[in-house]
Design a protein around this nucleic acid. Structure first.
Length: 656
DNA sequence: GGCGGAACGC
DNA sequence: GCGTTCCGCC
């Protein structure tokens, strides 16, 4: 057994906060265990031992008693407590160290996941040492990332003795009460021990330690903004440059609970933070020493963080995490798929691709210049909007704020985000915007955000074809998620979303899309489209149209006469284009000569109009109607027909 | 000692 | 959801 000073396992402060236990108002057993573990005075009862996260209950009865005291369950015993612990097996929060009596091991990764559901913990059991805490090492410095900030996650790595944890535990201890009232209190036994510690510490006030660990580059302001907390700096005083807890043996200088000291920082309603816990896909390399036994200092390397965040983002998509999670983190920048089109690729938003998490913006390093270094093999789409949201946006948002350099964009209120409590509490966006000044999407709305990134070249890509194709894919590919997500009115990552990005100047999916599994579009246009493409398309149209999906019509209805302006980035479905062209022709023809060919027109157009009428939207019906009353001079008709043919051919070439 | 099902309470 | 309690089983 190591001495407390040597055995600091670090957890982010939230790990010690009962409130951080999702779904439970009360302290959870594992929280409690952590509490005990980090308290020196209980090291003869329970202590870290062995691998990272591994601990041994030296005195089962005592631990049970303590637990019982905390929970006001006098009848508690180890048998019961162990049962509770065993329930953690399934949750993978804990697991048993086989062969060692009373020895369990924390699965840090899982702990993180539990608190930060959207964080991928796919690494669990796959390479990353379970419960391997990110490495605190060394002695002088401290965890660099703001504690309790989203970035301050379960970092088992952080030394318990580090200010962060000290602060957390300390307060906790101070506030300890054996009243069994709630999870925030610690039983009297603990309190006693802590009291002594504190005395020994001679430590000042709680807040200090906290501030001490703030990242130098992170202003308090920025930190608080992360929480959407009031801008007023918690502590005007300058934080100690480093060491805040005088006594390395006293890990509990400050309480993690909200209070005079660390108020806002300590209790984000929900920390959306990323875990510091390394995962298998995390390039992040821990400090030399992973041993929690070492006194430490978490020298956090921004670069590492950057990679880490990248990895995590990737994880989210690579693994089982539902993209729905992003609903709660509207500000997360999702790397955009690379487009053949350079312009699109350089879209500001895209440039952040590799660093989807807003956090990265906190760090001075912006990878805004690595648009092509995206490690993602798949397409990542900006958080899609729910249908309602999209619609609402279409109306409400006439002009996305120009955010030339992203100045305004960052803090721009995200209309879409309002729906989520999380979003409000965790407004990284603001911070992002200001910090990055890079047009990061603070606006959860993909379209708005993207658009707002000013320099985004509007690309009109023709011919279209994608929309219909996508619709197809959408129907077939989305199956699970789609159906599921619909319930939430959240449109996770169905292909449908692509339609939304088009208005943003995103080129419609192209070749590279075909390489993608996720967002693959059919290589061939729907059969129903084919009739259009032939010279006699018009004639054959009616029968086929009936079975055609109506998306294009819907689109046209919304778009009205499509943004035919060059700036109009809306891609018009092939079918629709033909339709419009046809209508135009009709109009032209009508204008040309009214008297002549009503009969002719009637004869020729009969079939078409009938068929078309069945699928046309009202508006277009009108157009058609117009055409129907307009005779066409043979010559003109010829031209028109050729035009049709040409267009069709062109479409064929470009399409598919 | 350890496991996990089941019923139950909050 | 998170235990708590009880219990049979290995």
């Amino acid at each position: 057994m190591k001495t407390p000073g040597e055995t600091g396992f670090a957890f982010p402060d939230w790990a010690y906060k009962p409130e951080s236990s999702p779904g439970s108002r009360q302290i959870q057993l594992w929280h409690f265990i952590l509490e005990l573990l980090r308290k020196e005075e209980y090291h003869d009862v329970i202590a870290w031992q062995g691998d990272y996260g591994e601990f041994v209950i030296k005195d089962p009865d005592e631990v049970a008693r303590l637990w019982g005291a905390r929970k006001c369950k006098p009848q508690m015993n180890y048998d019961k407590l162990s049962r509770a612990l065993r329930y953690y097996y399934n949750k993978r929060i804990l697991h048993k160290t086989k062969g060692k009596r009373f020895t369990y091991k924390f699965n840090f990764n899982k702990l993180v996941l539990v608190n930060y559901p959207f964080i991928d913990m796919g690494s669990t059991g796959s390479g990353v040492p379970q419960s391997a805490p990110p490495v605190p090492s060394g002695v002088g410095t401290h965890f660099r990332f703001p504690p309790s900030t989203p970035s301050d996650v379960l970092s088992p790595s952080e030394d318990l003795r580090s200010p962060v944890f000290s602060a957390v535990a300390g307060r906790m201890a101070r506030n300890s009460i054996s009243d069994c009232s709630d999870g925030t209190s610690v039983n009297s036994e603990m309190e006693e021990g802590v009291a002594e510690e504190r005395a020994a510490d001679g430590r000042g006030g709680g807040g200090g330690g906290f501030r001490g660990i703030l990242h130098p580059r992170l202003s308090h302001d920025s930190l608080f903004r992360v929480y959407g907390a009031p801008p007023n700096p918690p502590h005007p005083r300058a934080p100690p440059a480093h060491r805040v807890h005088p006594d390395p043996l006293s890990p509990f200088p400050v309480s993690p609970l909200p209070g005079p000291g660390g108020v806002g920082l300590l209790a984000p309603p929900l920390s959306p933070a990323l875990s510091m816990t390394p995962s298998s896909h995390l390039p992040y390399t821990p400090s030399p020493s992973l041993s929690p036994m070492l006194g430490s200092h978490f020298s956090f390397n921004p670069e590492d963080m950057k990679r880490y965040l990248q990895a995590h983002t990737q994880s989210v998509y690579n693994y089982h995490l539902s993209p729905r999670a992003f609903l709660h983190y509207p500000n997360i920048i999702i790397p955009q798929p690379q487009r053949p089109d350079k312009g699109a690729a350089h879209h500001p938003a895209l440039s952040h691709g590799p660093h989807p998490h807003p956090l990265h913006n906190h760090s001075p390093l912006h990878a805004g210049d690595e648009p092509h270094l995206s490690p993602f093999k798949f397409k990542l789409q900006p958080p899609p909007l729910g249908r309602k949201q999209r619609e609402g946006q279409a109306q409400g948002q006439g002009r996305p704020g120009p955010s030339g350099s992203g100045s305004g964009s960052g803090i721009a209120p995200s209309t879409c985000s309002s729906s989520s409590g999380l979003q409000s509490s965790f407004s990284l966006g603001g911070d992002l915007g200001s910090a990055g000044g890079s047009g990061l999407l603070s606006n959860s709305s993909s379209s708005a955000s993207l658009n707002s990134s000013g320099s985004l070249p509007k690309i009109k890509v023709e011919p279209i074809s994608d929309i219909e194709s996508e619709e197809e894919v959408e129907v077939t590919d989305i199956s699970e998620d789609e159906a599921e997500e619909h319930e939430d009115e959240f449109d996770p990552f169905p292909l449908r979303f692509r339609r939304d990005q088009q208005p943003n100047g995103m080129a419609p999916p192209t070749e590279d899309d075909l390489d993608e599994d996720v967002f693959k579009t059919p290589a061939v246009p729907p059969p129903t489209l084919l009739p259009f493409l032939g010279p006699s398309a018009e004639a054959r149209r009616p029968p086929t149209l009936k079975s055609e999906p109506t998306e294009p019509e819907e689109a046209s209805a919304t778009v009205g006469p499509p943004p035919t302006t060059p700036g109009g980035t809306k891609c018009i479905p092939l079918k629709l284009r033909f339709k419009r062209r046809w209508s135009e022709d009709q109009r032209m023809e009508a204008g040309a000569d009214e008297s002549d060919d009503k009969k002719v027109r009637a004869d020729e157009g009969e079939g078409e109009r009938e068929g078309e009428g069945e699928v046309e939207t009202n508006g277009e019906k009108e157009e058609s109607g117009q055409g129907s009353v307009s005779p066409i001079p043979p010559a003109q008709r010829r031209v028109s027909a050729e035009l049709h043919r040409a267009t069709a051919q062109l479409s064929l070439e470009n399409d598919c």
